[in-house]
Design a protein around this nucleic acid. Structure first.
Length: 530
RNA sequence: GCCCCGUUAGCUCAAUUGGUUAGAGCAUCUGACUCUUAAUCAGAGGGUUCUAGGUUCGAGUCCUAGACGGGGUACCA
C-alpha cells in the first residue's frame, strides 16, 4: 500500500491573531459500512462504563466535524530534536520557534480553562499547554474530548512554562486517533508480567526501559550484520521447512505439506544448509534467523529463538574466536553496554581479549578429577549423582562439566577443545583425535556461542552419524543422518570455521535482562481458556 | 513433566485467627481552578475476590480439582 499526496493532511492555517484548531475531514464523509446497523449496544458493566465514556467523546468529536481516527500528519519533528532545540532557548523569552510534534497523551492535567498534557513519541516526551483563551471558544470543546492514550498532533510555540518546564504552547491541534481503552496506572504502569507479555504494545508504551531494550536489540543485530558484511560475508536464507532437522540435538516441531503429502519439520539449526553453501563456493556466509525447538520453556529458553550462524572457508575455530570477540565488542557498543557490569550474580567484562581455557583444565580445576582418566571422572561424577553405568566416558565427562564447571564461568570466556565423542560435526585435532576443535563462549554460566573447526571428511561424518545414532533415539542425538548433506561433503567442502550465537541470549546479556522473555517481543504463551 | 508461589475494580495494591455491606490510590463521571508536573480540592459510580466443587452458622481467607502466570527443577550436545 502506497502513500498518495492526495491523502496528505491539509496544511494547518494559523493566524497570528487568532489561532484556530484545525478541523479535519468530517466524520459524516466516511463511507457507510455495508451493514449500516447501529453500533452494538454495550451492557452496563464496569468494563464498558469506562469505554462508554470514551465512546461518548468519540461521538462528540464526530459532531464537532472531526475524524477521530485521523489522517496522515506530515512534518512532525521528533520530540527529542525539539527538546534539543528548546535547551538552547532563553527561558524568559517568549519568542521561541513554532514546532510541530505528534504523539500519545501520557499525562493530562486539567486546570480549568488551561490544560497541560505530556506528549510522548518514539524519541521522547514533552509538555504541551492548551489554553481556552488561546484557542478560542469554538475549538475549546475538542480539548474536552481528550483522554489519556489519545494520539494527537500539536503545533505551537516552543518555550517554558512559569515553573520552568519546557512546553509547546499549542496554537493548533490535530486529532489523530482516539483510544477506547483505559491505559494502565499512570504511575506504576503495567506490572503483571503476564499482561506485559500478552499486551506487549502496552508494555512498550508504559514499561520502564522496555522500548529501550528492544531498540538495543535492533541495534545489536544491525551491528552484527555490519561486522560480518564488512568482512566479506554474504547473508543468506536457508529453508525453515525441512525433511530432517539436523545440526543440533533437539526435538523438532512437526508439520505436514498437503500438496506434497509429506511430513516436514521446522529447522532446529542453520548449520547443515550453510555448509552446503560452503561446498557451493559461497566461502563466507551467514544467516540470522529463527529456529524452533520443541523443548521446555524457561527464563533462558523459548521454543522459537533467533540464531546467528556464520561459516568461513579456510578458517578454523581460532578464526571464529576472533570473529566472536569482534561481534561481541561491536554489539556491546551498539547496545551501549558498559565495559564491566554485574549480571545474574556474575561480574562480567567486555574487555578484550576474552580469556581462553581448555575444557579439561577447567574440569580439573573445578572438580579435582583427572580429565585423562575415565575412572577418575566416573568417581567424581558419581559424587554428583551422574549416571555412569554403560555410558561413554565423554558423555559422563560432558555431564560432569555441565553440572560443575558451567555455573562458575562468569566470562565472557572461551572454553576450548571438547571431548570428541560429543562433537559429531567437528574436526578432530590432527595430533589428538580424541579432542575436537570446538569452543563455547560462556557468560554468567550460560552458553552464548558455539563454534567448530568444521568436519569436512565425508566418510568420517557418515561414520559419526551412524555410530551416534546407534542405540539412541533420533530425537536425542544431534547426529541425525542426512545423506544429502553427506553427498554434498563428498563433492568437497573447504576446511572452514563455523560459529553459532544465540541472539536472544546475547541481547539478554548486553541489556542485562533476567529473562529471555524480556528480549522477545512476543514470547510464547498458553491461550487463555474460554 | 515435577515442586514451590501467585491470581481481589480498567491499572497498582489492602483486607487481623474463618466473622458486619471486600477497602484505597490512579483511571472514570459531576463540580471548582489560566502555570500544572503522578496537579490539587469536593462529591459520585464502579467487584462472578481466576473457574468448578467441598467444609462451615459464616469463606477473598480452609480443603479438592482445574485454568493462567512467575520462580525452580528435569529436558535442552
Amino acid at each position: 500500500m502506497g502513500f498518495s499526496k492526495s491523502a496528505r493532511q491539509p496544511t494547518l492555517i494559523l493566524s497570528a491573531v487568532a489561532a484556530r484548531f484545525h478541523v479535519s475531514a468530517p466524520l459524516a464523509r466516511r463511507p457507510a459500512m455495508p451493514d449500516a446497523s447501529p453500533p452494538a449496544p454495550t451492557p452496563a458493566t464496569t468494563a464498558t462504563a469506562l469505554e462508554q465514556a470514551r465512546r461518548d467523546k468519540l461521538a462528540k468529536l464526530g459532531e464537532l466535524g472531526i475524524d477521530p481516527w485521523g489522517q496522515r500528519f506530515d512534518d512532525a519533528a521528533a520530540i527529542a530534536a525539539v527538546r534539543t532545540e528548546g535547551e538552547a532557548l532563553d527561558q524568559a523569552a517568549d519568542d521561541g520557534p513554532t514546532v510541530r510534534v505528534a504523539g500519545r497523551i501520557m499525562l493530562l492535567r486539567n486546570a480549568g480553562r488551561l490544560v497541560f498534557l505530556d506528549l510522548v513519541d518514539r524519541t521522547g516526551r514533552i509538555q504541551v499547554m492548551i489554553g481556552k483563551k488561546q484557542v478560542g471558544p469554538e475549538a475549546w470543546p475538542v480539548v474536552g474530548c481528550l483522554d489519556l492514550g489519545d494520539i494527537i498532533g500539536v503545533e505551537g510555540r516552543l518555550g517554558y512554562s512559569n515553573s520552568g518546564e519546557m512546553t509547546v504552547f499549542a496554537s493548533g491541534l490535530t486529532f489523530l486517533t482516539k483510544s477506547l481503552e483505559t491505559p494502565p496506572d499512570k504511575y506504576h504502569g503495567l506490572v503483571d508480567p503476564e499482561l506485559r507479555q500478552r499486551m506487549r504494545y502496552l508494555d512498550l508504551i508504559h514499561g520502564e526501559g522496555v522500548r529501550d531494550r528492544f531498540v538495543a536489540r535492533s541495534r545489536i543485530i544491525a551491528a552484527i550484520r555490519q561486522t560480518l558484511t564488512d568482512r566479506g560475508y554474504l547473508e543468506v536464507e536457508g529453508p525453515t521447512l525441512q525433511e530432517t532437522a539436523g545440526g543440533a540435538a533437539a526435538r523438532p516441531f512437526k508439520t505436514h505439506h498437503n500438496a506434497l503429502d509429506m511430513p516436514l519439520v521446522l529447522r532446529i539449526a542453520l548449520e547443515l544448509h550453510l555448509k552446503r553453501l560452503l561446498v557451493g563456493g559461497m566461502e563466507r556466509v551467514f544467516e540470522l534467523g529463527r529456529v524452533y525447538r520443541n523443548e521446555g520453556i524457561s527464563p533462558r529458553h523459548n521454543p522459537e529463538f533467533t540464531m546467528l550462524e556464520a561459516y568461513e572457508a579456510y578458517g578454523d575455530y581460532g578464526t571464529m574466536m576472533d570473529l566472536t570477540e569482534a561481534i561481541l565488542i561491536a554489539a556491546g557498543q551498539a547496545a551501549g553496554a558498559p565495559e564491566t557490569f554485574s549480571w545474574m550474580g556474575h561480574e562480567v567484562s567486555l574487555k578484550p581479549p576474552f580469556p581462553r581455557k581448555r575444557y579439561d583444565d577447567l574440569l580439573a580445576e573445578v572438580t579435582g578429577c583427572d580429565p585423562a582418566d575415565p575412572a577418575s571422572i566416573a568417581t567424581v561424577a558419581a559424587r554428583h549423582e551422574i549416571e555412569t553405568a554403560g555410558r561413554h566416558p565423554d558423555v559422563i565427562k560432558s555431564e560432569l562439566f555441565e553440572a560443575t564447571v558451567e555455573k562458575t564461568l562468569s566470562g565472557p570466556i572461551f572454553v576450548i577443545d571438547y571431548p570428541a565423542a560429543v562433537c559429531p560435526l567437528t574436526k578432530r585435532k590432527a595430533a589428538a583425535p580424541t579432542i575436537a576443535e570446538r569452543f563455547e563462549l560462556y557468560v554468567a554460566g550460560m552458553e552464548l556461542a558455539n563454534a567448530y573447526t568444521e568436519l569436512n571428511d565425508p566418510d568420517l561424518q557418515e561414520e559419526l552419524f551412524r555410530t551416534q545414532l546407534a542405540g539412541l533415539p533420533e530425537d536425542e542425538s544431534m547426529a541425525r543422518m542426512d545423506t544429502d548433506f553427506i553427498k554434498a561433503l563428498r563433492h568437497g567442502m573447504p576446511p572452514a570455521g563455523g560459529l553459532g550465537i544465540g541472539i536472544d541470549r546475547l541481547v539478554m546479556f548486553l541489556t542485562q535482562a533476567a529473562s529471555i522473555r524480556d528480549v522477545i517481543l512476543f514470547p510464547i504463551h498458553r491461550p487463555h481458556g474460554g
